[in-house]
Design a protein around this nucleic acid. Sequence first.
DNA 1: GCCGAATAGTTCAACTTTCAAGAATGAGTC
DNA 2: GACTCATTCTTGAAAGTTGAACTATTCGGC
Lengths: 149, 149
Amino acid sequence: MGTMGDTTEPRWLTDEEQCVWRAYLHATTLLEDHLDRQLQRDAGMPHIYYGLLVQLSQAPRRRLRMTELAKSAKITRSRLSHAVARLEKSGWVRREDCPSDKRGQFARLTDEGVEVLRQNAPGHVAAVRQAMFDRLSPSRWSSSARSCA
Amino acid sequence: MGTMGDTTEPRWLTDEEQCVWRAYLHATTLLEDHLDRQLQRDAGMPHIYYGLLVQLSQAPRRRLRMTELAKSAKITRSRLSHAVARLEKSGWVRREDCPSDKRGQFARLTDEGVEVLRQNAPGHVAAVRQAMFDRLSPSRWSSSARSCA
DNA sequence: GCCGAATAGTTCAACTTTCAAGAATGAGTC
DNA sequence: GACTCATTCTTGAAAGTTGAACTATTCGGC
């Protein structure tokens, strides 16, 4: 019925599944909020913006095409446009034309951007560590790391 | 040094930890985006708003004090105020004065709110199942459910 | 070369979130 | 009861996000 076009009873979640699902939502929102506040307070930007700077810092010549950056950060190009505009205003990123494709733009991390990363990386790593890894014994997560090697 | 007041080298993440951390961020953002889009498309509201309706639907008399709702949804009261205003405009929630505390307000799920939940619950459960539980063997998550019983 | 379709990126308007400030009520103390 | 302080909730402005529309450029076929 309804928009599902299906009169059969859906497979509801078991109590245990519901509980796991809620716990998951709680944990992830608390963690994301925590990191967002930490970075907003210390570095003056939200977590996702910080992630963009990190990506750029690890790219060759500290720059990436907009679409590449959007893909690796898992955000839309639109959102990235706004984000880069804001980061540019803060002086941490600069846009550069792409010579080989006149539609294209690079986002390049500026020296100020490097500096803001340098200053905030320790605090951020500490926050991640404290919130995540210090609470988990290696056996709790190392199995997830198989595909990392 | 700087704001950390510490000249010692911070404990950086190992390569494996970095990789796990990135995988975690990727997975959680993709999942959240997926569910947000599913609900925005089918139900006309973001995931968090849907969660508010669910909470209300399970509360006695389908209503909760604003602060209670904010706490259980892990959001600020301010954010909840705006959210409830929007849900009220959509007709799914109504505000009611609290007789015993004139500062207080209840958010109550309307019949239309019940209906929108009824229509969208199957699709949402299916999305959660498909994105989460169908991809995990029970042993991958059941250990997290110990505190759920 | 030219045309239509695809791609890169931006922009606009509507919406959501955040933070700080504010209005109203309650609760404890004298 | 008056004072102070805490609590409840709302508001307003600034910041961030979204999805669709838009511009400019490139690509593929002819």
